[in-house]
C-alpha cells in the first residue's frame, strides 16, 4: 500500500484490498504454496480402484432405493430387539452419567473446589474426553463381554467427560455477585451451591442433559459395530448381508428418533427457561 501522506495532493486512482490475515506477502505465498503441495500429496495418497467403484455404483443405487423404499417388516424382530437395547442403554447411561457428572463437574470448577480436587476431576474429564466411544467400547467389551451392558458403561463414561466439562465451565462463568451475596449471608458451602450456583446453572444443565441423551442414542447405534449391543449390531449385520432395504429402514428409524428428540428437547428447553 502507498502511504496515506500523498493522498491530499494527487487523487489516487488505485486501491487494493489489504490482505485479510497474513500481512507479509512472502509468508502468505509460502502458506498458500504449502497448502497446495499438501493437497496434491494428500490426494495422491488416495488410491482408488475405479473398476471397484464402478461396480459399487449399482450397489449404491440399490442402497438409495432401499433408503427410499425401506423394508421394516422382514427383519423387524432383529430391528426391534436392537432398538430396545439402544433406547434402554441410552436412558440408563444418560441418567447414570448425569449422576456422576454433577459432582465431578462441581469438583472441576475452579471457583468452588480446592486445588487437588480440581486437578483430579479435570484429569478424569481429560481421560474420558480424549478417547472415542468406540475405543472405550472395544476395551469394555473385552472386559465385560458382548452385549448392551458394555455399551451402557461406554456411554456412561463418555457422558461424564462431556457433561462435567460443560457443567464446570458453566459454573466458572456464573455471575459472581450472586454467589457473593449468598456468601455474605453466612451460608455454608452446601448452601452456597444450593442457593447461588444451582439456580444459575440448572436450566443449562437440563439442556445439556437432553442434548447428551440425543448424542448417546446416536452413539448407541455405533458401538454395536464393535459388539456393545444395540441397533448398531443389527445395522452391521444387515449391511454385511447386503440387505440395503433393511439397512435403509434402520437408518430412517435412527433419523426419525433423532428428529423427534431434537424437536421435543428444544420444547423442553424453552419450557425450562
Amino acid at each position: 500500500m502507498t502511504s496515506a501522506a500523498n493522498t491530499a495532493s494527487l487523487p489516487r486512482r488505485h486501491w487494493k484490498r489489504p490482505p485479510l490475515l497474513i500481512k507479509s506477502p512472502l509468508l502468505r505465498w509460502i502458506i498458500y504454496g504449502g497448502a497446495l503441495v499438501y493437497l496434491v500429496l494428500a490426494v495422491g495418497t488416495v488410491e482408488v480402484n475405479w473398476s471397484r467403484v464402478y461396480e459399487g455404483l449399482e450397489r449404491g443405487w440399490r442402497f438409495i432405493q432401499g433408503f427410499l423404499v425401506p423394508d421394516f417388516t422382514s427383519r423387524w424382530r432383529d430391528i426391534s430387539v436392537g432398538l430396545v437395547e439402544s433406547l434402554t442403554m441410552t436412558v440408563t447411561s444418560t441418567v447414570v452419567g448425569i449422576l456422576i457428572s454433577v459432582p465431578i463437574g462441581i469438583g472441576a470448577a475452579r471457583n468452588l473446589a480446592p486445588a487437588w480436587i480440581y486437578l483430579v476431576c479435570r484429569a478424569i474429564i481429560a481421560v474420558s474426553r480424549s478417547f472415542q466411544e468406540v475405543i472405550i467400547a472395544i476395551l469394555l467389551v473385552a472386559m465385560f463381554g458382548f452385549g448392551p451392558f458394555a455399551g451402557f458403561l461406554t456411554l456412561s463414561f463418555a457422558t461424564i467427560g462431556f457433561l462435567s466439562k460443560l457443567l464446570a465451565e458453566d459454573i466458572e462463568d456464573i455471575d459472581e455477585t450472586q454467589a457473593e451475596a449468598i456468601r455474605a449471608t453466612g451460608a455454608g458451602w452446601w448452601q452456597l451451591v444450593n442457593y447461588a450456583i444451582q439456580p444459575q446453572v440448572m436450566p443449562r444443565l437440563i439442556g445439556l442433559s437432553l442434548y447428551r441423551l440425543d448424542i448417546n442414542f446416536r452413539e448407541s447405534a455405533v458401538i454395536g459395530i464393535v459388539g456393545a449391543g444395540g441397533i448398531g449390531a443389527t445395522l452391521n449385520t444387515s449391511i454385511d448381508r447386503y440387505e440395503y432395504d433393511s439397512a435403509g429402514a434402520i437408518m430412517l428409524i435412527i433419523i426419525g428418533i433423532v428428529m423427534v428428540s431434537e424437536y421435543s428437547s428444544s420444547h423442553i428447553r424453552k419450557w425450562v427457561q
Binding site: A8, R12, R13
Partner: peptide, 23 residues
C-alpha cells in the same frame, strides 16, 4: 473497481474527513 470509481471514493473520503482510514 474502475479507476474513476476509486478516485471518486478517495475524494469522498477526503470530503468527509476520513482519508487516513481507508484501509
Amino acid at each position: 473497481f474502475p479507476e474513476a470509481d476509486v478516485a471518486t471514493a478517495f475524494a469522498l473520503l477526503e470530503r468527509v474527513g476520513l482519508s487516513d482510514h481507508a484501509d
